[in-house]
Amino acid sequence: MKMKTMKMNRVGCFLLFLLCFSWVGCEKATEYNPSPRDNFEALWRIMDENYCFFAFKDVDWDEVHDRYSLLVKDTMNQYELFDVLGEMLAEVKDGHTNLISSFDMSRYWAWYEDYPPNFYEEIQKNYLGTDYHIAGGLEYKRLADDRIGYVYYESFSSGVGESNLDYMFLHFQDCEGLIIDVRNNGGGALTNADRIASRFLEERMLTGYIQYKNGNGHNDFSDPEPVYLSPSEYIRWLRPVVVLTNRHSYSATNDFVNTMRLLPHVTIMGDRTGGGSGLPFSSELPNGWSVRFSACPMLDVNKEHTEFGIDPDVPVSITEEDLLRGHDTILDTALEFLQAKTDSIRNEGE
């Protein structure tokens, strides 16, 4: 009996030893927090520490805090709070900055809504018809008696594979010029932009720089890192190209235009792009709402921001007269421009 008691004591000692050395993590789940004040402060802080264009846009974020703080009441419901916070985000005038709840998404779209559309699907149909080809996200067709290739790319989020591009270029092999229409293309994946742009390069080239915020201060940035693009190993197009743009050419499209405008055989035509040169990151509020904001500035080759857009080489707008006739002034101008250019090249050759 005594022996048994000793053994039990030893087991007890051992268990005590284990408990002494047991170090259990005591982190709890973060509870849902609907407090208007807490969520307001959390959103303001997320932007304050991570948004990348305060200095460039000359936004006094402290002043914004004080102004909007007065509008936040403990008694306001979630819809009222959402509206106030959404308006606060709109102060930075950034299409990449959104507040996203289960019932709504705040946005700043004035970068294209305040300008002429310069693109109409109904009018585009007059040129594309119904017998155009579709390869991935590309819609393409030969125009102007098969002299000019026309491709419309609606979104850089739509996948475009190397074989899609190869088949498109094969279809255009007898064309003398090419029109790439990225009007109303709101952006998407930079990899798609790079993949397409690399088809027009003769050699590796510097296309711009990228930075990221490496601290919480408004001017805490990493050194600009050069961004290079190499020519594609697949079919490349080195004949004249016109890229059509409007104010709704945004984000990755802006980046695509930023690269294409560097090429000597490419002409940008249409309206200024919408901009959107900040690579967006995401975070969240204690009530579960998601916030997206520009976090990493992408600069052009001169280390300048293109957040507010890129001007075309040839500014053209759709005229009211053409609109009534169902004509696309920008596309017509591009067709004429390319035909004149290819005629000129042919004449020089002769």
Binding site: N50, Y212, G215, E225, P226, F281, A295, C296
Partner: peptide
């Protein structure tokens, strides 16, 4: 990676 550094940044060589 560093705070705020996109993985896209790594693809550019640095």
């Amino acid at each position: 990676v560093h705070k705020g550094e996109p993985y896209y940044y790594l693809t550019q060589g640095n």
